[in-house]
């Protein structure tokens, strides 16, 4: 009945080694099977590419957007993008619900004077870059999601460099919530405008089109981009803020 205490760690490590070996062998088998089945696949040219060819040929004509990926995201598959931003909304709601604690965050004092001044000079340029990426989504690489992440980075850098109380005072959670809701409502409102004016949900608004290549062209795509950008930026900032709130409460 008695298990000698000296041998128990050895048994445990042997168990672990066996488990590791077994899992490695199984994974190697799966990898080999995958590799063999990749060899049986047709190449990309062998697939039925009718949809892709249609989008490449007439995407610019249909939507007025130079960036074909943006055309797919906010015109052909705009309803899917709405669902995607709903997923972000759900994640943010869940995180805030799980980590909810009515408590002013206790701030660290932030980093040194040099870092604070440097960031003070750089912040407007970061914001400008984020807004540029957002509003030029139909002309150059980028779009709402990417620009929104850059905007969220500003809030995160503020929390690290100036301390989280500064971020709380300047951009309170209420402001961020309002921005996020505003972005989502912009998206939905443009969809409803599509019903009223063009006859289908999220149909591209024809009267907003202008000369191809100008900033305000491509129908409702730039506006959807800006709405999505603010929504994503505020959402990610809220996620970061909820997490750091808890951490600081435990530390102090």
């Amino acid at each position: 009945m008695e298990i000698p205490t000296e041998t128990q760690p050895e048994v445990e490590s042997l168990n672990k080694l066996m488990k590791k070996t077994l899992v490695s062998v199984v994974l190697a088998g799966v990898a080999l099977a995958l590799y063999r089945s990749f060899a049986l696949m047709p190449g990309y040219q062998g697939l039925n590419l009718g949809l892709s060819n249609y989008i490449i040929e007439s995407g610019l004509k249909d939507t007025g957007s130079l960036n074909l990926i943006t055309a797919v995201l906010y015109d052909y598959r705009a309803f899917d993008s709405l669902g995607e931003s709903t997923v972000i909304f759900g994640a943010v709601s869940g995180i805030v619900l799980i980590l909810s604690r009515k408590m002013l965050p206790v701030s660290s004092k932030g980093l040194s004077f040099i870092v604070k001044r440097t960031l003070g000079i750089m912040t407007p340029f970061i914001a400008l870059f984020g807004l540029y990426i957002m509003s030029h989504g139909h002309l150059t690489p980028g779009g709402g999601f990417q620009g929104g992440v850059i905007l969220a980075a500003i809030s995160i850098i503020f929390s690290i460099v100036y301390g989280s109380a500064f971020d709380y005072r300047r951009y309170s959670p209420q402001t961020k919530t309002a921005l996020e809701t505003g972005g989502a409502l912009t998206f939905l409102g443009l969809g409803l405008a599509g019903i009223l004016m063009e006859g289908a949900f999220l149909q591209n608004l024809g009267f907003l089109t202008a000369e191809t290549g100008t900033l305000i062209s491509a129908g409702s795509i730039p506006y959807i981009n800006i709405g999505v950008g603010f929504k994503v930026g505020a959402g990610l900032a809220i996620i970061f803020y909820s997490m750091i709130q808890k951490t600081f409460e435990e530390d102090f």
Binding site: Y44, L49, L51, S52, I55, I56, G59, L68, I69, A71, V72, L73, R77, D80, S81, E84, V87, I88, G90, A91, G143, F145, V232
Partner: peptide, 19 residues
């Protein structure tokens, strides 16, 4: 051109993965 459809799908996937 390269195919824009897989790139758009990947963008969707990245956002969902981050969430």
């Amino acid at each position: 051109f390269n195919d824009p459809v897989p790139q758009a799908l990947t963008l969707t996937g990245i956002v969902i993965g981050a969430s």
